[in-house]
Design a protein around this nucleic acid. Structure first.
Lengths: 231, 231
DNA sequence: CCAGGCCAATAACATAGGTTATTTGGCGCT
DNA sequence: AGCGCCAAATAACCTATGTTATTGGCCTGG
């Protein structure tokens, strides 16, 4: 059982996420919660060992899925935020050589192994959530394949802001971006230095404000013009 | 009903594919076939309008999923070969702005809309197939984000050869690559010219042989050294 | 058998982005 | 208050890849 209201709100980001994709009944939630287990907190930098662990939901904090090459190059496959699930269904099913990395202090809740699609509605909810992740994956692929550094950064900032807004972690046009530029670089397929250059340029262009790890999207139309990838 | 044995073999590439992921019974196949419908042939260059169409299996030929940006830049998300399904489950579920493009004369077989996971076994088979596509998608992402042109080409050639071998369309270390270099470029996030340069270089390095659209992997260890992305 | 197209192959040049190194600016710790 | 550390910010230089253009082979249609 959960205690304080504030706790409830955050503990259940994943419920809101799932409800977003299918109209879940109270009984579904109960059934789902029945399959959820212990909560753990991990320190930033911790590798959660995707391959060996049970599926889990992110309660709070940022994580990422990353693939490292022999020589140390690293590609971040996806960012994971509160409410995101890992290890269910398809997306984020264990894959060779992919690690699940805590980027901030991370609170996760583990689930029983095996599908949590306990009924039709939950099935649709999980499928919807997985499809959403998949869409983001494709967007990321397009970024890496065919967008310039400037476009990639703009596109990623918009994506993150949108996702954070959905889970109530944005403040208007601003949000907290708790990652080093090195991490952005590994996500965007760029060098650390060039990420910095690009951020400076966007700052000079008046598109964003950046102080510490606080970002503000000052000129959303401008950012969308720069980053959007519609046909 | 199918007529000639040769036809059976190719018509059912998707059955072999699914069996690869779960031990299907004859009754499963029958049930599945019952939900499959008309066969169509499309000319190269044809956009099959992913969003408007039913799910389908590729019977023969090559296709791709592609995303085009406003200014004409294009990113190929995935290559699709005989036996691959499109529009089922997650991967290749209709997504905004993504087109399904025939790269060669293409024979496809449409399915009833809705899930074809008619039972437990079929469900696992489809999930497995989707997971496989997903793994490839992630591999592609790493290619685009963190590999050099040379590495990307090597990695893609190995992937294609592997997939073609699985469906009996490779000849030893060689295979037919029925796409223009422009298409490779759009898949690899490179320019046409640089793809050509890179192929020439690999040729000079004795890694591949290239005559017309026939490719041979002359030095597999060399290619793997160049292209593999294991940690 | 020639003309036109298409695509691979090159060449020459331009640039986005990578690399290495140095400086600056917080910020916690003693 | 001063030290040390880490990450952001810059600078200078380098290179992989992009761009634009030209050429040559090959096939196809007339």
């Amino acid at each position: 059982m959960l205690s304080a209201p504030a706790t409830i709100a955050t503990e259940r980001a994943y419920v809101r996420r799932l409800k977003h994709h299918a109209p879940l009944q109270d009984e579904d939630i109960v059934a789902l919660e029945g399959r959820l287990g212990r909560v753990e907190i991990h320190a930033p930098g911790k590798d959660l060992e995707l391959a060996k662990t049970q599926p889990l939901f992110l309660i709070s904090g940022w994580a990422c899925l990353a693939h490292s090459l022999r020589d140390g190059r690293r590609q971040i496959i996806a960012f994971l935020l509160a409410g995101d699930g890992v290890g269910f269904d398809l997306l984020t099913r264990p894959q060779p050589h992919i690690e699940l990395l805590a980027l901030t202090p991370l609170k996760v809740r583990y689930a029983q192994p095996g599908s949590l699609a306990l009924n039709e509605r939950l099935g649709r909810a999980f499928a919807g959530a997985a499809a959403e992740q998949q869409t983001r994956l494709v967007g990321h692929l397009v970024r890496l394949g065919r967008q310039t550094a400037y476009e990639r950064v703009a596109h990623l900032l918009l994506e993150l802001h949108g996702r954070l807004a959905e889970i109530g972690e944005a403040r208007g046009e601003g949000f907290h971006l708790p990652v080093k530029q090195e991490v952005l670089a590994d996500a965007l397929g760029l060098s650390l230095v060039h990420v910095n250059r690009t951020l400076q340029q966007m700052r000079r262009d008046g598109l964003i404000d950046l102080r510490g790890s606080q970002v503000s999207l000052l000129d959303r139309p401008g950012l969308e013009l720069a980053g959007d990838q519609r046909a």
